[in-house]
Amino acid sequence: MEWLFAPFGVSFVERALVGGLLVSGICALAGTWVVLRGMAFLGDAMSHGMLPGVAAASLLNGSLFVGALLSAAAMALGVTALSRSPRLSRDTGIGLLFVGMLATGVILVSHSQSFAVDLTGFLFGDVLAVRPRDLAVLAAALCVAAGIAAAGHRGFVALTFDPRKARTLGLRPRLANALLLALLTLAITASFHVVGTLLVFGLLIAPPAAVVLWARGVPTVMAGAALLGALSTFTGLLVSWHLGTAAGATIAATAVALFFLSALGAGLRDRRPRGAPAPAGDPRKEPEYPS
């Protein structure tokens, strides 16, 4: 069993594992709502919308995390503002901001002496270069994300499944939507420097999507997504070590592969004779997400 645990005896791989586990927890908290509310396009747009802030921070020798956070926050505010227009669909506003922010970021990065290296690091990250202070930032981000998820849970549920009831119950759907965008912003900005903006999307979407096919409650989806994210991190790092592949990409690819395995299992489960009653305990028979 030495092949299974030997890689994690190396300090930088051990830090990568801890960082990946923290990212998995953060992404599970935000990704569950992204999947349930059908916000995948917004998540993808926000992950790329951080590029201007990261590029500006790099050129000014500032904090990449702060730059990413400010840029993603600006993206979230822009989406909120444009979504209030009765003449523009939400997807149209997101698409315009997506292209505009990405183009601005590329223009800024093009002034750097190390354009290719900077952009590659932004897109794909370097999970094996996680430092102790990065772990501290991720741990703090996980605590904040858990606080936001707990405080806004009722509002998130009502907003996702019955927005009109949210107003009736006085749950302030606009505030709930703002908190949800803040949670998504935090998850993306805290995670991008570990697995990159393109690959964080895999951990944000794949584990919750895999668990949604089986689970019957929001907390269960979050817990299952965190576990699948952790499994993806461990397996991805192990495969990367033995096969010499890119660690971040291997983690994301593992997460996506687990989703397809889950989808295959769910498809086999749902293949029953036409007219036959659903088996007891079948999570697809009566979803209970609002609980």
Rank of each mutant, 00 (worst) to 15 (best):
W3H: 03
L4S: 05
F8R: 00
S11E: 13
F12R: 01
R15N: 05
S24P: 03
I26E: 05
C27R: 02
C27A: 14
L29Q: 08
L29H: 03
A30R: 02
G31V: 07
T32D: 02
R37F: 07
R37L: 01
G38V: 09
F41P: 01
L42R: 09
A45Q: 07
M50W: 06
P52Y: 09
V54S: 01
A55H: 05
A56D: 01
L59I: 06
L60T: 14
N61E: 11
G62W: 08
G62C: 00
A68K: 07
L70C: 12
L70W: 10
A74Q: 09
A74E: 08
A76D: 05
L77V: 14
V79Q: 03
A81M: 13
A81C: 07
L82W: 11
L82D: 02
R84I: 07
S85T: 04
P86S: 02
P86Y: 07
P86M: 01
L88T: 00
S89L: 06
R90N: 06
D91Q: 13
M101V: 06
M101Q: 14
L102C: 06
A103H: 09
T104D: 11
I107F: 14
L108K: 10
S112G: 05
F115M: 10
F115Y: 15
D118R: 12
T120D: 13
T120Y: 09
G121R: 12
L123E: 05
D126M: 03
L128P: 04
P132W: 12
D134Y: 09
L138C: 12
A139K: 14
L142N: 08
V144N: 02
A145M: 02
I148R: 01
A149Y: 05
A150W: 15
A151P: 05
H153Y: 13
H153Q: 10
R154E: 15
G155T: 09
V157P: 08
T160K: 12
A166G: 14
R167D: 12
T168W: 10
L169I: 07
L171A: 06
R172K: 12
P173F: 05
P173A: 06
R174L: 11
L175W: 09
N177K: 10
N177D: 15
A178S: 13
H193R: 15
V194L: 02
V195W: 08
T197G: 01
L198W: 12
L198I: 09
L199M: 11
I205W: 08
A206Q: 06
A206W: 05
P208S: 00
P208G: 00
V211W: 02
V212H: 04
V212K: 07
R216H: 00
G217E: 15
P219V: 00
A223M: 08
G229P: 03
A230Y: 10
L231A: 15
S232C: 09
G236T: 01
G236K: 04
G236I: 04
S240L: 10
L243Q: 11
L243F: 15
G244T: 14
T245H: 10
A247N: 11
A252C: 07
A253E: 11
T254F: 05
F260A: 03
F260N: 01
L261W: 10
A266I: 01
R274G: 03
G275P: 01
G275Y: 04
A280T: 06
G281F: 10
K285M: 13
E288V: 08
Y289C: 04
